[in-house]
Design a protein around this nucleic acid. Structure first.
Lengths: 357, 357
DNA sequence: ATCTGCGATGCATACGTTTGCAATGGATTT
DNA sequence: AAATCCATTGCAAACGTATGCATCGCAGAT
C-alpha cells in the first residue's frame, strides 16, 4: 500500500533520512525551518512511518494488550459492564498514543509473557478475572511481566491491581438504606472466597450496620451468582425464608434486576414494599422500572488509572494497587421506610393487584 | 524481556538461523528430524518470534483493525449488541491467527489508509456506522483500502458490507404477529433515510402485510431513535394517537423495552393487551419481564463472515456484500390475539390493577 | 565411473527505521 | 587570529527476521 519511505521524503526535502526521522519525531536537534519543510513534504506525499520498522529498531511497540476473560463456555454472557470498560481503556490508551490489542481468552500462564517477548505489546490489562483466586496467584508469580488486573485489591496480594473500592461501595449503599430508616436489609450476592469483590461489598454492608449499631440478620444473606437469574433465585429463597425485610442491597445490578422481578412476581412492589440498591450502574439501568438506585463505578477514570498504572509499570516505576471510589446514584428503587412497616419490622405483600385477590 | 533470538537457537541446535526460521514456520524444506530438534530447543528456551522483525521483513502484520463508532459525545450509550459483535469478530480473527487492534473513534477519512500504510493492520472492520449514509459514501471511495463494514447492504452501493437481512427479519417478525391473528400492528423505529437498516426492517413489515393482504395503517408508525427512551416516547405518542392496535414490532430490543415500559405505565399489559416483538436479541433480553420475542442476529457467524470477507479482500479476491439470515426467537411477549380484541379491532386497557380503579 | 537430480542447509541481503557518533560551519570567546 | 563552542546535519550501524540463491552430499541413472 504505502511505498513511500523516509528515504524518499529525505531526497525530496534535500536532507538525509536521519533528519527526516528526527523531524517527524519532533527532535530538538533539527532546525525549525528544516522540520517545517520535511513535514510539509511528508504530508503531501501522505507518508506514514512504518511501525514494524520503527518497533524493531526502537524495541517499543506502543501497544498494550487487553485480555478479557471469556467465560462464554460457561453459558454466562459477557457482562455489559465490560463493554464500557473496554471502551474506556481503549480511549485512555489512545490518549497516550498507545494502541490496544484485544483478545478474549481463557487465562493461560504464558499468554502474558508471550505478548511481551514477541514484542506485540508492552504490557497487558486484564479484565474479568476478579473472581478467580487461583489465577491471581499465578499472576503474582509474573513479577517480571507488565500486567495490571481490574479486580479486587487485597492487602499483601502479589501482582498489580486496580479496582473499585467495594467496601466503600457496599458501605454507602447500605448507609443510604439505613438513612432511609430501613433496619432489615437483605444482602444478595456471592460471599464465597471465590469472589473477593463481593465479599468486600458485604464487608461494607456490615460496616454500615455497625456504625448504626444494627445487627444484620445472617438469614437475610442470600448467595447468588452475579447474573440476573442468580438474583431472581436468591430473592425467591429470601422470601421463602419468611424473615421480614424492607430493603435489599444487591452485589450486582443484574442481581438487582432479577431480585426485583422475583419480588414483583410475589407481589412485593419496589420501592413501595422493598427498597433495592444495586451495584455497577449498567448503561441502561437508569431506564429500568423502577429506575435503579445503584453504586456507580466510573469506567472512564478506571480506564485512565489502569492504563496509567500499566505504563508506570512498563517504565519501571514503582506501582501500588489502587482503589477507585464508587459513587451512590439515588434513583427510584429506594425510598424512605413507611412508619407502619417500621412498626411491624416486617414487609408484607400489599395486595393491590386485583388478580391476586 | 525476550533476549533470545533465532540466531541463538540456531547456535544451540547446530544449524543456521535460516533453518530455525524455516523450521518454526513449518517449511517443507527442512528435515523433520532437524525441525524436531529446533522446535524442542526453541521451546526450552522459551523463544518467541519477534513480530516486529517478522512483519518488517514479510510486510504482513497479521493484524486487523476494528473501528467501533464512538457516539458517546451524543450521550447515547454504546449499544450492548456491539460487545457481542466485538467478541465474535475478535474470536473469528484469532481462529485465523490474526490479532485485533481495537479503536473507538469518530470516522476520519484517512484513518483506514493510515492503518494500512503504517503497516499496523492489513484491513479494517467497521462497526456501528450503519446509520451514517454520508460516511458510507466516503468509504465507497476507498476502493483501494481493505475495509468491510457491518451495516446495511444496499444494491449498487460502493464499498463492502456485511449485514443482517433486515428485510427478512422484519418480515418474519411481522409474519409471526399476523400468524397470531393480529391485524393492527404498530411499527416503532426510525424510517428516515439516515437509517437504512431500520428502513429495511420496515420494508419487511410491509411485505408481510402485503402477503396477508392487510393494509398497514400509516398512523401506526412511530419514529424513534434506537434507544430505550426512544421506544418509550414513541409508544406514548402511539397511544395518544388513539388508533387501536394489538401488537407492535420494534426496530430494536431497546425500543421494545422502552415501549413495554410505556405500555405498562398506561396500563396496557404485554402480552395480554399488546404483543411486542423486538430486534437484536440482546444478551439479557431473555430475562426481561416478559421475556421478549425478538429477531436474533447471530453475532458468531457475523464475526466469521466479516473476518472471512475482509481477508478475502486482503488476498485480492473478489468480494460480494453478504446478508445474514436472522432468526425469530419466540418468547413471552407475543401471544395469540384474543377473540374479543379481534372483534373490536381495538386494544383497551384492562383495569386489573386496583390502583387504577 | 561420471552425470544428473534432489533433499537439505547455509550465506547474505533487504525490510525501513532509530540513534550514537562524527563532521561541518559559523559565531563567540580569549 | 586562534581556540572553543554550539547548532545542525550526515554517516553508518544496528534491530531480528524471511527468503532467493548457491552449495553440498548422496542416491539413482546412464
Amino acid at each position: 500500500m504505502n511505498r513511500v519511505t523516509a528515504g524518499e521524503i529525505a531526497e525530496l526535502a534535500g536532507v538525509s533520512q536521519s533528519t527526516v526521522s528526527r523531524a517527524l519525531r519532533g527532535s530538538p536537534l533539527v532546525n525549525p525551518i528544516t522540520r517545517e519543510r520535511v513535514l510539509r513534504i511528508a504530508n503531501e506525499k501522505n507518508y506514514k512511518v512504518n511501525t514494524s520498522a520503527s518497533r524493531l529498531r526502537s524495541k517499543q511497540s506502543r501497544t498494550l494488550a487487553l485480555l478479557v476473560h471469556d467465560d462464554s463456555d460457561m453459558g454466562s454472557d459477557i457482562n455489559p459492564f465490560f463493554l464500557s470498560m473496554i471502551a474506556a481503556i481503549t480511549k485512555a490508551a489512545a490518549e497516550k498514543n498507545y494502541d490496544i490489542l484485544l483478545s478474549f481468552q481463557q487465562f493461560s500462564d504464558d499468554w502474558i509473557a508471550d505478548y511481551e517477548s514477541s514484542n506485540k505489546a508492552e504490557g497487558v490489562v486484564m479484565l474479568g478475572y476478579g473472581g478467580y483466586t487461583d489465577y491471581i496467584r499465578k499472576i503474582g508469580m509474573l513479577d517480571n511481566a507488565h500486567c495490571v488486573t481490574w479486580g479486587p485489591v487485597i492487602d499483601g496480594q502479589p501482582g498489580h491491581f486496580v479496582g473499585c473500592d467495594n467496601v466503600h461501595g457496599g458501605y454507602v449503599a447500605t448507609q443510604h438504606l439505613l438513612d432511609l430508616g430501613h433496619r432489615q436489609i437483605a444482602f444478595i450476592g456471592d460471599v464465597s472466597d471465590d469472589c473477593p469483590e463481593f465479599q468486600a461489598r458485604h464487608a461494607g454492608y456490615r460496616r454500615a450496620h455497625e456504625e448504626f449499631s444494627v445487627d444484620p440478620n445472617p438469614r437475610l444473606q442470600a448467595t447468588a451468582n452475579p447474573s440476573e437469574l442468580g438474583g431472581y433465585e436468591a430473592a425467591e429463597r429470601l422470601i421463602d425464608r419468611d424473615v421480614g425485610f424492607t430493603a435489599a442491597f444487591c452485589a450486582t445490578d443484574l442481581n438487582a434486576i432479577g431480585a426485583i422481578r422475583a419480588f414483583r412476581n410475589r407481589n412485593y412492589h419496589v420501592p413501595a414494599d422493598i427498597s433495592v440498591v444495586g451495584f455497577d450502574d449498567l448503561p441502561s439501568i437508569a431506564y429500568a422500572t423502577p429506575a435503579l438506585t445503584t453504586v456507580r463505578q466510573d469506567t472512564a477514570t478506571a480506564g485512565d488509572v489502569l492504563v496509567e498504572t500499566l505504563l508506570d509499570l512498563v517504565r519501571g516505576n514503582d506501582v501500588v494497587s489502587r482503589l477507585l471510589p464508587p459513587e451512590l446514584i439515588v434513583r427510584q428503587s429506594s425510598r424512605r421506610l413507611r412508619a407502619e412497616d417500621a412498626a411491624t419490622s416486617r414487609s408484607r405483600p400489599r395486595l393491590t393487584d386485583a388478580r391476586t385477590a
